[in-house]
Design a protein around this nucleic acid. Structure first.
Length: 590
DNA sequence: TACATACAC
DNA sequence: AATGGTGTATGTA
């Protein structure tokens, strides 16, 4: 058992380890290589799969961009190795002493007293689809669209088909692959069910996405009075086994879990016995030390593809190696990075859970489209993005003091331009007035874009101001031009009650199937709109567009596994309740 | 401050 | 026909 967390002075072999000094870089494999850092993909024919992916990608702009990107990373690595070469023994020795002190302090801060669980639903979206369509159960399938796959079932993974892979590549890897379009309403409903189970074990559980959450079950374990049958399992294991069983009973879906004394380790552990399994890491220092020693650095949350390559170039693949090189790392990387490496290599992680309702720092809206340099299209797109962003801001009761435009060229290069606003706003027109000029100064006759995005930042909570804003609208004498702050349609012809109804609806976010009446701007369910329109049209004096052309308010198309589109992963609508309450109050006043 | 990069999901 | 969207943190100049 290597138990050298305490060793404060650097290892002697730091000085003798010249193995990698002269190796330029050795990031492994081909450019488009399969990412197999994923459950269910350990023992497949990586060579063949990578070749197929490479074949399908070669020559594309995407591929060229990846190549350029990799060249930049290689240059960074070369830089790193040059820096390493320039380090003297003297410097290393000093660094060693400093790092030793930090290690001692970190060690003193180690807390093994709490029990964290990371729960991860197995191939969540795919599992839901298979549950509801038995004909899919014995077939390789994935959830997503032709553009991008959100997740795949375990059969498909055997072919190398995985999340974040475009559908057409998936088809090449697995000609029989069935691609099922996502149904987020359903996934959210399922999530709501097993979230109740989470809440039973930890009312403060922290959801990372629709299929993943952290729980701190310390308190639950303390209070748990259940008499359990004698078994080999520890209390924590029994409890988590129960939790997974409850999830299964409630949803017919399996989950995997990791149990550990901090969130970092719990996350790693949930992957070990996936699918439908759990792994318990006993909260004892030697156990943690041994576990972490063998761990690939890539498994740690926060160490991604690029950092992994840099560490690999330094001869570091495991956490044990990372710990050995702690002095070197403290010289080559920023303080923050070096510290986080050190914590990972010591098996330290967060022992409290992130504030689940921390205020958002930014809100954004972006969309990919067929690459174009058409100025009118781009301006139009820009306006649309601003309008949708505005809705989002109003719904969240946030105003922005800065706005950023993001543009991706047809060659996949990304540019962002930010502008500070004279005053905080959520108004679509104001956003647009600032964003469009930034867009225009990036447009050039030969430059085509494939994505545009708008981001609001420097946010301030606007609950107090909200009242005055809405008051201002509502208090305008009827007959003057009143515009809805959300959808900007004129509310001039509406009675106060109808204005309220409109705002209430607009602010709380309309449902997918709702249709907005082009005449009175009210929202109606599809079955009701025909009837409503007839009456409304009869009452209206001006000529009106046909109901068929009424704007159908649609949420963005949905994906999974992080590509949860707009609004898919929202927190509980706490704010909306207050807002509705506010309107209810107003309605009763009038 | 402004912008780019890395990362998670 | 052809590689996503949302959000946070960090590095750098």
């Amino acid at each position: 058992m290597n138990d050298d967390f305490d060793s404060d002075t650097g290892d002697d072999d730091l000085f003798s380890d010249d193995i990698n000094h002269d190796v330029p870089f050795h990031h492994a494999g081909t450019l488009m290589e399969l990412n197999d850092n994923k459950a269910g993909m350990a023992d497949l024919d990586k060579e063949k799969i990578s070749r197929i992916i490479e074949e399908a990608s070669k020559g594309s702009k995407f591929y060229d961009h990846k190549k350029k990107q990799q060249e930049r990373i290689d240059a960074k690595i070369a830089d790193l190795l040059r820096k390493k070469k320039a380090i003297t023994e003297e410097q290393l020795k000093n660094a060693s002493a400093k790092v030793g002190q930090i290690v001692r302090n970190l060690e003193k801060s180690r807390d093994l007293s709490r029990t964290f669980v990371h729960v991860d639903m197995d191939a969540f979206y795919a599992a839901v689809e298979m549950r509801d369509d038995p004909s899919l159960r014995d077939k390789p399938m994935a959830v997503g669209g032709p553009g991008m796959l959100a997740t795949s079932n375990y059969l498909a993974r055997r072919f190398g088909v995985r999340a974040a892979m475009p559908g057409f590549i998936g088809q090449k890897l697995c000609p029989d692959l069935i691609i099922v379009p996502p149904n987020f309403e359903k996934y959210r409903a399922v999530n709501a069910i097993f979230s109740e189970v989470f809440a039973k074990y930890d009312p403060n559980y922290s959801a990372m996405s629709l299929d993943e959450a952290y729980l701190d079950i310390t308190e639950f374990l303390r209070l748990d009075q259940n008499v359990r049958k004698p078994s080999d399992l520890s209390h924590a294991e029994e409890v988590v086994s129960d939790l997974r069983e409850e999830i299964f009973l409630a949803t017919q879906l399996t989950a995997s879990a990791g149990i550990a004394p901090n969130t970092l380790l719990a996350k790693v552990c949930s992957d070990i016995n996936k699918p439908n399994g759990q792994f318990y890491l006993r909260p004892e220092r030697p156990v943690v030390a041994e576990f972490v020693e063998k761990l690939s650095v890539r498994k740690a949350c926060g160490i991604g593809k690029v950092t992994e390559q840099m560490l690999n170039a330094l001869g570091i693949t495991t956490c044990a190696e990372m710990f050995e090189q702690r002095a070197l790392l403290s010289l080559l990387f920023s303080e923050i990075s070096a510290l986080s490496f050190l914590r990972v290599s010591m098996g330290l992680g967060s022992t409290f859970m992130g504030d689940s309702d921390a205020p958002a720092k930014s809100v954004s809206n972006e969309r990919t489209f067929k690459a174009t340099s058409d100025a009118d299209f781009l301006r139009d797109q820009c306006r649309r993005l601003c309008e949708e962003l505005s809705e989002d801001l109003v719904r969240k009761q946030l105003q922005a003091k800065s706005v950023t435009i993001k543009l991706k060229t047809d060659t996949f290069d990304v540019k962002t331009r930010v502008r500070n606003l004279p005053e905080a706003t959520w108004n679509a027109d104001v956003l647009c007035r600032h964003v469009v000029p930034m867009l225009e100064s990036e447009m050039a006759p030969k430059r085509a874009f494939r994505l545009m995005g708008v981001r609001a930042s420097n946010l301030c909570e606007k609950s107090a101001n909200q009242q005055s804003t809405l008051d201002a609208i509502l208090k305008q004498p009827s007959g003057t031009e009143r515009l809805c702050p959300v959808c900007s349609t004129s509310l001039a012809k509406l009675s106060l009650a109808l204005v309220n109804a409109h705002l209430d609806r607009c602010l709380s976010g309309s449902q997918q199937d709702d249709v907005q009446c082009p005449i009175c701007s009210g929202f109606f369910r599809r079955p009701e709109i025909e009837h409503h329109a007839a009456t409304c049209e009869g009452a209206a004096t001006s000529t009106t567009p046909s109901v068929k052309s009424a704007p159908i308010r649609k949420r963005g198309a949905a994906r999974e596994d992080g590509f949860v589109p707009r609004d898919e992963c929202q927190r509980k609508p706490k704010k909306q309740l207050t807002l509705s309450a506010f309107f209810d109050q107003r309605k009763s006043e009038s």
